[in-house]
Design a protein around this nucleic acid. Structure first.
Lengths: 157, 157
DNA sequence: ACAAATTAGGATAAACTTCTCCTCAAGACG
DNA sequence: CGTCTTGAGGAGAAGTTTATCCTAATTTGT
């Protein structure tokens, strides 16, 4: 798997918030319910996204989370910097501590250009773009519910 | 990280064996020592590579592991099928259980071509090729030891 | 002031990965 | 046959990621 569960939840949550009316806080409970992920665990992730300056949080009634100003322009690489930690973009495929052009593992030369494509892709996908893609109804943010029901509904629509 | 430690050790070990004289068993101890990985853990991995039909194992004096006939042609995707399990090649970036052209996550369309490049790369790298790359001395299979010593020695040789 | 709702944060449990240790089985060699 | 060497395999320790629970702090509305 290329991304940790934490990162997957974080990305899903951020996209979901980006699809919601701007500036109106969304409850952790709502997000977790919609995404079908453990609420208490998601709460921790939301906390780290706040510390990473992507979200504002509000307590009490009318509380919840909403995107910080300009955060719709955040790209996935920035999100992953928070959830996977730095170094995510640099690790060697074979796990070598040092693997650069000067002194490399046997995969390095071939892997490098592909890794750069992956990184470029992550950088070009902003929350805004992903949210719009979901809003068209052609893409899903969550697993299919009971069965294939909703897939059929989508095709009809 | 894209590969588990187990997969990294497995690949390193296989490449190392592929650089050694063919048909002459290599000791687990030697491999672990060379790669600087925990011997007991590597032994488990070697076991699973045997069960995956990539290696033969021999017990007792003159024992050790060597590549099965034709195993030099094994590509990394085949190795990963053993160490990461099937489904490694199919997982959705966002973790959705079902994510196909018909019903996809918002990353799917962009991610698919890149994933295929990654898979193609893994498929084109065989143990044979990687072993040869290491044998030229221009690529390393292990971390630099104390300092940069061995890198210099390799360049001289 | 009080009650209700919500996030913050610490402690800890559960699950998985990585790693270790010990005993057993098998082969080589005297 | 006995001994040494090596991998096989089971049990479980250690570390990390994922998940849960409880209490405290903060905000809103009555």
């Amino acid at each position: 798997m290329i991304l940790s569960r934490t990162s997957q939840y974080a990305i899903q949550a951020l996209i979901f918030i980006a699809t919601q009316p701007k500036g109106q806080p969304v409850l952790n409970r709502e997000i977790a319910g919609y995404l079908n992920v453990p609420p208490a665990y998601l709460a921790k992730i939301m906390q780290s996204l706040c510390k990473g300056n992507l979200l504002y949080s509000f307590r009490g009634r009318l509380g919840g989370f909403c995107l910080r100003e300009g955060a719709e322009k955040t790209d996935l690489l920035q999100v992953l910097a928070i959830t996977e930690g730095p170094g995510f973009a640099q690790d060697c495929v074979l796990g070598l501590k040092v693997c650069s052009d000067a002194t490399a593992c046997p995969m390095h030369a071939k892997w490098k250009p592909i890794k750069q494509k992956v990184l470029a892709l992550l950088q070009e996908q902003t929350l805004e773009k992903l949210a719009r893609a979901v809003q068209t109804g052609r893409y899903r943010l969550t697993d299919l519910p009971g069965g294939v029901l909703s897939a059929h509904r989508l095709q009809q629509a």
